[in-house]
């Protein structure tokens, strides 16, 4: 199967929250970034993929196994997970934690773990509860990477970290996917981080998947223009994907190939596109 994750028609409802009809594929060997505001359903989607919570309907396949397969637990050995908080026993040191993990994962790689501890400069004798947030996340990542995973599921793994550590982590993700059968699903609300590493971007908004597209194509497809109100009215309504009206003019997100070439388009970042689409409601 060419996809590391295949989600079809996935539904999950909580009182006051609905994750609705999600279709999402993560092609093997690529990095998919899941963007969305707080409460959009990113974490719910990742937990559903792990079968940490039960879905209402739909099918999910992870690394060739259906979520309902009796031996789905075996697949979890091949998935490295980092959630937004690391929950390890507070009194353990990194070295003691290793002993626990060696019993948890059958393909635990002691040497890899030790190398990551060194690379991340994690203290060996310090107890987990005294770790800083950056250290905790690095430790969780070291554990996730040390049992030879084929897939990484990262839920807000880079948020709350300083730019240096985040960049280090992005490098690591980049390195991890040098292997053709290594894939990553990463959620974040730091869009610029995702823009740096992702091949695909999926945008979750109020429980619905508004778009899932190749990152570079998105940037090619949309452009921001700054125009007067009259010009805006003259514009083909089909070409308009979103707008922000100000006192002295209008900023509009447009489809590049539907506007006259005389329009001066601004350099458009992924963040601009996401913000405009979130406000205007995307039409794909």
């Amino acid at each position: 199967m060419p996809n590391a994750i295949e989600i079809k028609g996935l539904n999950k409802s909580y009182p006051g929250f609905l994750l609705e009809d999600i279709h999402l594929d993560l092609p093997r060997g690529s990095i998919l970034g899941l963007v969305g505001e707080n409460g959009a359903g990113k974490s719910t989607l990742i937990k559903l993929t792990l079968k940490a919570i039960n879905r209402d309907s739909g099918t999910v396949r992870v690394l060739d196994a259906d979520l309902d397969d009796p031996d789905f637990g075996r697949i979890k050995e091949e998935v490295g997970v980092v959630l937004d908080e690391a929950y390890y026993p507070e009194v353990l040191t990194a070295q003691q934690l290793e002993k626990v993990m060696a019993y948890t994962f059958s393909n635990w790689d002691r040497e890899a773990y030790q190398n990551y501890l060194k690379r991340f400069q994690l203290p060996e004798q310090k107890k987990f509860r005294n770790f800083s947030r950056g250290m905790k996340m690095k430790l969780a990542l070291a554990v996730a990477l040390s049992h030879d995973p084929k897939l990484l599921l990262l839920d807000e793994a880079t948020s709350g970290l300083d730019p240096m550590i985040r960049d280090e982590m992005l490098d690591l993700f980049n390195e991890f996917t040098r292997e053709e059968n290594h894939s990553i699903l990463i959620s974040s609300h730091i869009v610029s981080d995702l823009e740096k590493v992702c091949d695909y971007i999926a945008f979750l908004h109020q429980g619905k998947l508004l778009l899932c597209e190749e990152k570079d194509r998105l940037v090619e497809k949309y452009a921001v223009v700054k125009i007067g109100r009259q010009d805006l009215e003259a514009l083909d309504p089909e070409a308009l994907a979103g707008k922000r009206e100000g006192k002295y003019g209008v900023e509009a997100l447009v489809y590049r190939d539907l506007i006259p070439s005389t329009f001066a388009t601004e350099h458009t970042s992924l963040e601009d596109i996401i913000l405009f689409l979130a406000k205007g409601g995307a039409r794909g």
Partner: peptide, 12 residues
Amino acid sequence: RGLAKDLRISVI
């Protein structure tokens, strides 16, 4: 894949 990762751009 190597070029994409070295340039830090998308494989696709």
